[in-house]
Every structure is written in structure tokens, then in C-alpha cells.
Design a protein around this nucleic acid. Structure first.
Lengths: 193, 193
DNA sequence: CCTGGTTTAGACCGATTGGTCAAAACAAAG
DNA sequence: CTTTGTTTTGACCAATCGGTCTAAACCAGG
């Protein structure tokens, strides 16, 4: 009896995510989203709860599509030291190949929106802890394999690596160029050497 | 013949800065500023060019009042290694004593607003380079004094330190707690050891 | 073909946005 | 006291904000 939607929810979320990513939460209007998706205002509110809901879903999709899948892939790399190196290489590469200088949606959100909204703060926290856990896991594994020196303090180092990731993403939006970003990435690797 | 203003421009800028700092540029309305300052709308527009102008002035004031003065003070510390340690100590302390989790206006701006506005981007870039230069100067001086090992690569290390500063400020807004922040600061010091 | 239930389209809502303006209030110079 | 040039004030502006709602369009079961 019902009538099928003429669009896929996940497509709309993906496109909304791009807009939030580029402009930030506050600066994105519903009209921006309807323009980007072609969906009419009414349909949007029929399918979603509103701007906040749409944003939360965007964050979730971003997390699973971009972050989690990448971390799982890197965990499959046999050499954990190599995995961490690859992480930073691809981070720098992604930052340099980002013509709009959008940075990372997770970190952008950590700064812009996180402190005002509890749902979002938790999502951001969880996302960041996922990266910390990845580094911890790889460092420990590296120690087992004798690949990473035992003198490396696992948790503090993992956290410092994440701080460097944040720094790269933020500074990559304008202040730092190619050389600087690569130098920072190299210092990150030095932390586990 | 004229008539003196009933307020000090720099006071208004200071208060506007606090609002921008707490809420971000996009989320701050002119009404927020008139509420915070008590200045009426028309007077505000008579004294300043508008929201953007007010924001640029806020950034400038923030830079000279908070960043530059602090760096000059630390440069007066005889032991450069100690100066860098003090920098990170007070950074962590400031981050922890920040009940509103406002973070740093400069970095908040780097993320929220910088990529859309050239004036602002330059201000942010200059501010960050000022910190890089501070670290470079201190590292070089430390090498002279035999206080910092010659094996430390000055510029890359200075840049990595700034990246860590950014990480601390961003993650300090919610994701990282006291212990984590202190661990990151310690890793920073390890970079010059 | 009709009817029930859902989606669509887009007009519409009050509130708020950044910004303007004319008139009133004012202090100092003459 | 008048003149002069500035500041203050609050009403006002069009545009846009996030969100609602009704009527038309629509597909499937009967």
C-alpha cells in the first residue's frame, strides 16, 4: 500500500555530510542541504528529524565509512610499525590532496560543536578513542615482534600520536604546507623508534 | 566640538572576543555581542565595520594580549629547555582550568573560519608561525648551551611541537582528560631530549 | 477503478540574522 | 545660548533561519 521513497537515505546522509564537512554545522543551513541533495524541504523533514539528527547520522557514517574501515585495513598489515607509518603517510597525502581544505570532520566537530552538545561530544570522544586504541594495539604488537623498542611507553605514546594526527589535520588546513606536514609525520614515527 | 564615546573600544573588543571564543564565529550573533557588552546595536555599527571587522580585531587582540606576551616572557627564561617545559606545563594547566572548554581562539579559528576567509587565514598563519619561531629559537639556543642534543632536528621538531600544542588544545576540549594531556606534554619534551 | 496510506512539493510560519537609518541626546567651541 | 559634529537609540529592513503543514501526486491491495 505504501509508496517507496524516491531517494536512498544513506545517499542523502552522505551528501549532507559533505556539506557539514565543508562548511561546519552552524554555517550549514537546511537550504544548503536541500540544494546539495535535490531533496525538497518537506521530504527531508519527513525522512529525518531535523538538522541535528542529520548531523549525528553524518558523523556516524563518516566514522564507519572512513575511520573504522581504514583502521581495520591497517590492522591487517603484518608489520605494526609499517602500519603506523602508512597511517601517517596516507594522512599527509589526504591532507595535501584536499583542495577545499576541509580537514577531518571528526576534529572539525570536536572544535566547533562538541562542547555544546552531549550526543555529539560522545561521538567525538568515541571516535578519537578508537584511534588511540588502534595506536596502542599496534605499539604493543610491535613490542612483541621486537619491532618497536620496549622503552616506548605505550599509552602516552599512542596519545601523543593522536595529538599529532590532530595537529596535522588542523594545521594542514592552511598554516602548514607539504614540507612541514611531512616533517611532523616523521617526528611521529620517531616517537616509536 | 565632538562628543566622547561612552565606552572604550578595546573593552568592547575584549568582550566580543570572549563571545567569539566561546561560541565560534558563525554561531555568534550581533545580538550576542550587544548583550554581552551592553552597547546598543547602532553604536556598535558606528564604532566598528561589522561582525567580520569585530572578529578580526578580536583575533589581533587575542594574539598580542595572550600569545605574543607569553612567548616574550618565556624567551626571557635563561634555560631554553626549561622555557619549553614551562610552555607545555602552562598550556596543560590552562586547558584543565578552562571550565567552558573554550580551547584556544587561534586554533578554533583555524578550523572553523580560516579556510573561508583570506584575512583571517593570514592572521591564523602568522600566529602559528610565531609559535613555530619561538620553538625554533629556543631549540637552537638550547643546542648552543649544550642543553638540547644536536641530534634534534630544529625545524621539524619545532613544527611537531606546535602540532602537539594544537592536539592538546583540541583534545583538551573534551576527548582527553588530565592524565592524557600530561602524557602528551611529556612526549613533547621527549622530542627535544 | 477505487481506495488507503505514504511521499512529495512548496507555500507558509514566527523568529532571528547582519546591517541601516533618522531622529534625539549630547558635549564642547563660539 | 547657539551652533557644530558626533554618538546614541530603537525602530526598521530584507533575507534567511529551522521547522511545519496542507494539498496534490503516487503506488499497491482490493
Amino acid at each position: 500500500m505504501p509508496w517507496e521513497k524516491s531517494f536512498e537515505e544513506s545517499d542523502v546522509i552522505e551528501q549532507a555530510m559533505e556539506v557539514f564537512w565543508e562548511k561546519g554545522y552552524a554555517a550549514t543551513s537546511i537550504s544548503d542541504i536541500t540544494d546539495a541533495t535535490g531533496i525538497k524541504r518537506g521530504s527531508l523533514y519527513n525522512a529525518f528529524d531535523g538538522k541535528h539528527d542529520l548531523f549525528v547520522r553524518s558523523l556516524l557514517k563518516y566514522g564507519s565509512d572512513r575511520r573504522t574501515s581504514k583502521l581495520r585495513m591497517l590492522e591487517a598489515v603484518e608489520d605494526p610499525r609499517e602500519a603506523i607509518t602508512m597511517f601517517f603517510d596516507s594522512l599527509v597525502k589526504a591532507t595535501l590532496n584536499d583542495p577545499d581544505k576541509k580537514g577531518c570532520l571528526l576534529f572539525n566537530t570536536a572544535l566547533e560543536y562538541s562542547s555544546h552538545d552531549d550526543d555529539v561530544r560522545k561521538l567525538v570522544s568515541d571516535g578519537i578513542n578508537e584511534v588511540v586504541a588502534f595506536f596502542e594495539g599496534r605499539i604493543n604488537r610491535g613490542k612483541q615482534l621486537g619491532n618497536i623498542p620496549d622503552s616506548v611507553d605505550t599509552r602516552p605514546t599512542a596519545r601523543a600520536l593522536v595529538a599529532l594526527v590532530v595537529g596535522i589535520r588542523v594545521l594542514g588546513r592552511g598554516a602548514f604546507g607539504k614540507t612541514a606536514l611531512r616533517q611532523v609525520a616523521r617526528q611521529a614515527i620517531d616517537l616509536i623508534s
